[in-house]
Amino acid sequence: MSLRVTQRSISANTTANLQHSLSQMQRLQEQLSSGRQLARPSDSPTGTVSALRLRADLRRGEQLVRNASDGLGWLGTADSALTQSLDVIGRVRELALRGRNGSMGPDDRAAIATEVDALREHLLGIANTTYLGRPLFAGTAAATVAYDAAGVYQGDAGAVDRTVLDGVSVTVNVTGPAAFGPAGADVFTVLVDIADHLRNDPTQLGTDVAALDQRSLDLKTELAQVGARYHQVEAMRSRTEGARLDAQNALAEVESVDLPRTITELKMQEVAYQAALSATARVIQPSLLDFLR
């Protein structure tokens, strides 16, 4: 026996179908207006876990880029400070060589010594360069300067590291002794010696110039390392930025609504809904009553 169909069952069925159609439309409209196809975990549990992971990656990437930028700031400042120091040392070497020349009188040498003293002050200023309020060459010590007026190192041998990729951290500082020589033989002592010998004992200047050359060589080595690390950090930053872009695209793919597809679906759903409505209007109206007498 086929099912008996009654007015109530027809209206119940059509109401249920219209409801279903309407709720589909609501879902699509929700997606369109929010621009997201993932509103809650049950919409797609796997999509949700990807979205959560990608969001975490994005946030972490943002932070890694900030770390790298900070590291670049440290390294860039160190680079220019070291370059300036090399210039100063070159000038001192010139002066020392000139003072060694036998044609110089004591007064001339005293004048040169005064200039060397001034250059030493200048070099001390460079060695006390700060980055964001911290002395660049003082390691991790909580000191206000890296070298005091007497040229004594105030910092420590601590390394300032920046995490630029997960698991990769780069040392972004140069400690005073590494750049300017070990205590007692550092460039400031050499400069004091040069000024002293210019005034009192020019014969010692040959040894001083040799010591100065050694400091200059160390500085150049350090400068090369700083340059290399600068490039390393920069490469890692651009890698992180690339990865962030990829993650952003992936997140959009998982989370954002596919506009053309959703709009098409919505249109189709609208058509289906209208068809259902007009069919309902036709089905519910007539009964035998309309045809009796």
Binding site: S42, P45, V49, L52, Q63, A141, A142, T163, G167
Partner: peptide, 30 residues
């Protein structure tokens, strides 16, 4: 006494709880 942030950096790299939370959200979603 050192001006050092290495412990903070170590903490910043943690994501154990995040993973646990993600698993939990996925279980809920499923």
């Amino acid at each position: 006494g050192a001006i050092d942030g290495s412990v903070a950096q170590q903490l910043a790299a943690q994501d154990g709880p995040d993973g646990l939370y993600r698993e939990m959200v996925v279980r809920l979603g499923v």
